[in-house]
Computed example of a mutant assay.
Amino acid sequence: MEITQNAALVVVDVQKGFDDAEFWGARDNPAADGNIASLIEAWQESDRPVVFVRHDSDEPGSPLRIGCEGNDFKEYVEGRRGKGRGPELLVTKSVNSAFYGTPDLDAWFKAAGVSQVVLAGIQTNMCVETTARMGGNLGYDMLVALDATHTFDLTGPNGWHLTAGELARASAVSLHGGGFARMVTTGELVTAVRC
């Protein structure tokens, strides 16, 4: 796997509010947090750009609302911010796609000559998937570190219920099959950037 020297790692919504199991329900992939931390460290050690995305929810009752502790990044993310020598950006948003945040992520990528983007974070089938789809449509080489994401069980129309694991697999199949993004592992990425 080839990772360009200016490939950007986009860390999506790794916020304390997602630890509220009573609000979100059952989740998948307990290894996600460790894998996200490994990616941030590898990117910072190799002086590559890192983008931290924070969801500032405007939904009443959401644990991700501005002013709530749940809006804050998890400690292992907050503790790494500003530690790398490569470019770093904070994007805030209130919708699913990091490309509809502030500042303009697409403009920042274009100014920095970024053409390859690696995604990690929360939730696999929501903000990670939406950002991957939009990035693919914008022409970026999108890679999703699936084992560095997680999501939650969800019930949809007609009482259809999917587990978090089923939703993650559905996202991976849709993104890969639709040509929006390639699915990769944390191990593959860390090895590639440390070669």
Results as ranks from 00 to 15, higher is better:
Ala7Lys: 02
Trp43Phe: 13
Asp56Glu: 09
Tyr140Arg: 08
Gly113Ser: 07
Glu188Tyr: 02
Pro49Glu: 03
Val10Asp: 02
Gly187Trp: 07
Thr149Pro: 01
Pro87Cys: 10
Leu175Asn: 04
His176Ile: 09
Met1Ile: 09
Asn125Val: 00
Val114Pro: 01
Val128Met: 01
Val10Thr: 12
Gln123Asn: 06
Gly135Val: 11
Leu90Arg: 11
His161Ser: 15
Glu129Tyr: 00
Val173Asn: 13
Ala145Pro: 05
Gly135Thr: 07
Arg27Ile: 00
Gln116Ser: 11
Ser62His: 01
Ile66Val: 15
Glu69Phe: 06
Val114Gln: 04
Met134Ile: 14
Val193Phe: 04
Leu167Lys: 14
Leu143Phe: 08
Ile122Thr: 08
Thr155Ala: 13
Glu75Asp: 15
Glu129Ile: 00
Pro103Lys: 08
Ala145Trp: 05
Glu69Asp: 15
Leu9Glu: 05
Gly25Thr: 07
Val50Gly: 02
Asp19Val: 00
Val118Tyr: 07
Gly84Asn: 10
Val91Asp: 03
Leu9Asn: 07
Met126Trp: 05
Phe180Lys: 04
Val117Met: 03
Lys16Asn: 06
Asp19Trp: 02
Gly101Ile: 11
Met1Lys: 10
Glu75Arg: 15
Ser62Thr: 02
Gly86Lys: 08
Phe23His: 14
Asp104Ile: 09
Asn125Met: 01
Val53Ala: 04
Ser97Phe: 08
Ala168Lys: 14
Asp28Trp: 04
Ser38Gln: 11
Arg133Phe: 12
Pro60Asp: 10
Ile40Lys: 02
Asn6Pro: 05
Met1Ser: 14
Ile40Glu: 01
Trp160Ile: 14
Gln5Leu: 11
Thr191Ile: 03
Asn35Ile: 09
